[in-house]
Amino acid sequence: MNVTQTAQTLLSNQVSLRKVDKVFSPPGKPADAVHALGPIDLELHHGEFFAVVGPSGCGKSTLLELIAGLSTATSGEVAFEGKPIEGRIPDGVGVVFQEDASFPWLTVSDNIAFGLRRMKLPPGEKARRIEKALAMMGLVPFANSYPAQLSGGMRQRVCIARTLVTEPRLILLDEPFGALDQQTRLLMGDEVLNLWRKTGATVFLITHALDEAAMLADRIGVMSARPGRLIDIVETGWSRDRDSRIVQEEQFGAITARLWRSLRQESMKAIGKIEAAT
């Protein structure tokens, strides 16, 4: 690899994890330490849609929190756009959680405006961005409603819109549709693809649903049972303008099948059917 190539990989890698481990040790009881994650090496390219699937409890969410700066790696390095994160929340990153994180005391548009509060924007620009986010997520008629008046799916849109207004370069999605029904999930998937195309941001999605990962992502990382490591990376080869109709394609079935092949053993470990040693 020559110098230009190295520079290019650095440029095109938005997030890089090197030998990252996460160990949870309860204070004062080192014997009860849990090796949750790692070692993990991973590069996320600029503008790609990367999904992570894995058995429950494998540390998927921990991985996301490390990239978000919500927690610090026990060892190894996590870098965003070339700068180490080390537990500080980097600029240009947005997160949507599985739980409803809309603020019940603010209206929908105030919730969205909340995302902008630390950015120093002229009032006109603020209003324009809020309008745009409302329109993008189909929330215009509900701008002055309170979250409690909306369905779970609509509240999740509010949270996505609140992230979008900041125009993040990296969007982290932590099972954002986990609490929704299957049909709503497929439609929300289409909307996420749409956003991803329009914003040009990198998307990192955590999910337990294999079909969701297969439909949405360019690349899919498969994680092992705890301690979570990446045991496979699947390239889907979808075109950029895909939508949920690809579920009928042969390739979709093949991808889902490959994911399951890699995961079956791990999932059985996770539910305790076979010992981790075998």
Binding site: A68, L70, I89, D91, V93, G94, V95, F97, E99, D100, A101, F103, P104, W105, L106, F114, G115, R117, R118
Partner: peptide, 25 residues
Amino acid sequence: GVLLKTARINQMSPVDTALRVTLPC
């Protein structure tokens, strides 16, 4: 807890978090 995480993602100071998230909630 997810509201507190949201506050951290928005890089809010402890005082700001108290005034704009915890207390309203």
